[in-house]
Design a protein around this nucleic acid. Structure first.
Length: 487
RNA sequence: GGCGCCAUGGUGUAAUUGGUUAACACGCCGCCCUCUCAAGGCGGAGAGUUCGGGUUCGAUCCCCGAUGGCGCUACCA
C-alpha cells in the first residue's frame, strides 16, 4: 500500500530509565489512538543513549506495560544505542554546514563557570567561547586527540517558534537558547540530536509527547531548519499530576503502569481512564440526553480521538475515578471474558477452583457486581471457588459472635440436608420457617449464614449464594459454624 | 532567578468560540429498596468560572496586569 501524506507516522519514544509510568502510558495511548484513528503507523523507539541509566530490564518493563494496555506498535522497537552511525552522520552535516562547532571545554570548567554565573546573578548558559575558535584550528585540535563535544550554533538574534497542535503558537527568543551539546565528547549523541535525527529518519509526521518537552522543541526546530527538513506537527499533551497538583511521582503512590495490573485493574478500564486525562471527545462523547459518556471501548476511543480534544491544562490522577471505571468494566464483562484475567489472580493466590467450569462461571457472574478489582475474586470471594478459605474476623465479630446463632446454624444445616429441593425459594422458605420456629429474626440467621458460607459480611443475596454453592457445601459449611473463628 | 505554558465545584471535563438558572461524570451527603454490601432509583450540598482592571449593551469566552501551579533551565531523556 502506498503511503500518502494523510497517513500519519507517530512514535512513542520512552527512555528505559524506569518502568512505564502512567504519564508515559498516556502519551503512548494518545499516539496509538492517533495512529489507529487515521490508519497510520505507530513506531516504538527506545531512547537509550544514556548508558548510565538505561537498562534492558527497564525496556522489558516498558514493553510489558504496553502489552498489558493493549497498545501494539507497527515498527520497532528501535534502539537508539544501535543507531549511532545515523547520529554521527547528522552531526557531520550540521558541522559541515556551519551549524555546529567543536567545544573543548571540560565538564569541570563548565560546572565552574555555571556556578560562577549563578552566583553573579547571570543566566547559567554556555558562554559560547569555543564557537569563536577557527574551524581548522578546531579540526586540528580534534585530530590531535583533544577531547571535545559538538555543540549546535544557535542563531545570535531573532526568535524560534512553532505552531503546536494543542498550544498554538509557541515562541522562544534565541537569546534564551544555549548552544546545546549534540555529541558528547565520547561521541554518543545527546537527546537533542538523536530525537531529531530519528524523527527525520523515521519520517514522523506528528510528534505527540508530554508538555515537558515544550521548552526543548525550539532546539529541535533549529536543527530541522539547519538540516533543511520540513517540521513535523508538534502536539504537546499536558502532564498528569498527583492529588496535590505536583508532578505525579512515587510519593503519590504507584506510578508504574504494571502496579495497576497488580492492584487488579482491568487493562481496558485503565486505558479508558487514561484516555480521559487531558482529552475529551467533546460533543461527540455525549449521549442522547446530552450527558457526558465516559465509558468508551477501544473502537470508540479510536473513532472519537482527535488532537483537538486535548486540553492545555494539567490533569490530576484520581484513584477514585479509576476505581469506578474498573468496577464498570468488571460488571460489564461476562464471566467468560473475565475468566482468564481472574485465573491469573488465582494463580498468584496459589490455588485453582475445586469446582466445575460451569459452577465457576456462575459464581463469577454472581459476585462480579460486588467486585472492586480482579483481586477480589481471589481474596474476598475465594469461598465461592474453593473450600479452603478464611473467615474475615470483622465479619465473624459482626454476625457470628453468638454461640446461640452458631448452634442454630448447625441445626439449620441438618434441615437443609434433609430437604430434597434446593432452590432460592426453597432455601429461603426453610430458613424463614426455621427462624420462626426458633423465635429468632430471620435476618440474624441470614447474616450468620452468609459469614459461615462465604467468610464475608458482604455477599450477594444469600439464597442465590446457597444455590450457587450447592447443597453439599452449604450443609458442610453451616454444620461447621461452631468452629469458625476458633481455627 | 530567567524563559515558557496553564488557570471553570474536591477531581476529570462541557458550555452554538460574547447572550445558559454555568452542564455532565467521579467523589461526597441524605432517602428509598433490603438478608449484608454493592448496584439501582430519587433528592442534595458543592464553582458565579484564581484575583484586579479594561473592551462591550453584555463576558467563562477577547485584551492587559497580578497571583498561583507546572515545565525547562545538564556532555539526562
Amino acid at each position: 500500500m502506498s503511503e500518502s501524506v494523510s497517513t500519519p507516522r507517530v512514535r512513542f519514544a520512552p527512555s528505559p530509565t524506569g518502568y512505564l509510568h502512567v504519564g508515559g502510558a498516556r502519551t503512548a495511548l494518545f499516539n496509538w489512538l492517533y495512529a489507529r484513528h487515521f490508519g497510520g503507523t505507530l513506531i516504538l523507539r527506545i531512547e537509550d543513549t544514556d548508558f548510565e541509566r538505561s537498562s534492558e530490564e527497564m525496556v522489558e518493563g516498558i514493553l510489558e506495560g504496553m502489552r498489558w494496555l493493549g497498545l501494539n506498535w507497527d515498527e520497532g522497537p528501535f534502539y537508539q544505542s544501535k543507531r549511532l552511525e545515523l547520529y554521527r552522520q547528522t552531526a557531520e552535516k550540521l558541522l559541515a554546514s556551519g551549524h555546529a562547532y567543536y567545544c573543548f571545554c571540560t565538564r569541570e570548567e563548565l560546572e565552574q563557570r555555571r556556578a560562577a554565573a549563578v552566583a553573579a546573578g547571570r543566566p547559567p548558559m554556555y558562554d559560547r567561547r569555543c564557537r569563536r575558535i577557527e574551524k581548522d584550528i578546531a579540526a586540528q585540535r580534534k585530530a590531535a586527540g583533544e577531547a571535545c563535544a559538538l555543540r549546535f550554533a544557535v542563531p545570535e538574534g531573532g526568535a524560534t517558534s512553532f505552531e503546536d497542535a494543542v498550544f498554538g503558537k509557541v515562541e522562544f527568543s534565541n537569546a534564551e537558547i544555549e548552544d546545546f551539546v549534540l555529541l558528547r565528547s565520547d561521541g554518543i549523541p545527546t537527546y537533542h540530536l538523536s530525537v531529531v535525527a530519528d524523527d527525520i529518519d523515521m519520517r514522523l509526521t506528528h510528534i505527540i509527547r508530554g508538555a515537558d518537552h515544550i521548552s526543548n522543541t525550539p532546539k529541535q526546530v533549529l536543527q530541522y531548519r539547519a538540516l533543511g527538513v520540513q517540521l513535523p506537527v508538534f502536539a504537546h499533551v499536558p502532564l498528569i499530576l498527583g492529588p496535590d497538583k505536583t508532578r505525579l511521582s512515587k510519593r503519590h503512590g504507584a506510578t508504574s503502569v504494571i502496579a495497576y495490573k497488580e492492584f487488579g485493574i482491568v487493562p481496558e478500564a485503565f486505558r479508558n481512564f487514561l484516555s480521559l486525562l487531558g482529552w475529551t471527545p467533546g460533543a461527540a462523547g455525549k449521549d442522547a440526553d446530552g450527558k457526558d459518556r465516559e465509558i468508551f471501548g477501544s473502537d470508540e476511543l479510536i473513532r472519537l480521538f482527535s488532537l483537538d480534544g486535548i486540553s492545555k491544562s494539567n490533569a490530576v490522577f484520581d484513584n477514585d475515578k479509576l476505581a469506578w471505571f474498573n468496577t464498570e468494566y468488571i460488571r460489564a464483562y461476562d464471566a467468560q471474558k473475565l475468566l482468564p484475567l481472574i485465573e491469573e489472580e488465582w494463580a498468584k493466590a496459589g490455588f485453582t477452583p475445586d469446582r466445575s467450569q460451569d459452577e465457576v462461571l456462575a459464581a463469577i457472574n454472581l459476585v462480579k457486581p460486588r467486585a472492586r478489582n480482579l483481586k477480589d475474586f481471589a481474596i474476598a470471594f475465594r469461598a465461592y471457588f474453593i473450600d479452603s478459605f478464611e473467615y474475615d474476623p470483622a465479619a465473624v465479630a459482626k454476625f457470628l459472635k453468638d454461640d446461640f446463632v452458631r448452634a442454630l446454624l448447625v441445626e439449620l444445616a441438618a434441615r437443609y440436608e434433609s430437604t430434597a429441593e434446593f432452590t432460592e425459594a426453597s432455601t429461603e422458605q426453610v430458613l424463614r420457617e426455621f427462624a420462626e420456629e426458633k423465635g429468632v429474626k430471620a435476618g440474624a440467621l441470614i447474616n450468620g449464614s452468609r459469614v459461615a458460607l462465604t467468610g464475608q459480611a458482604v455477599a450477594p443475596s444469600l439464597f442465590a449464594v446457597m444455590v450457587n454453592l450447592g447443597k453439599n457445601r452449604v450443609v458442610k459449611r453451616l454444620a461447621a459454624a461452631n468452629n469458625v473463628g476458633t481455627v
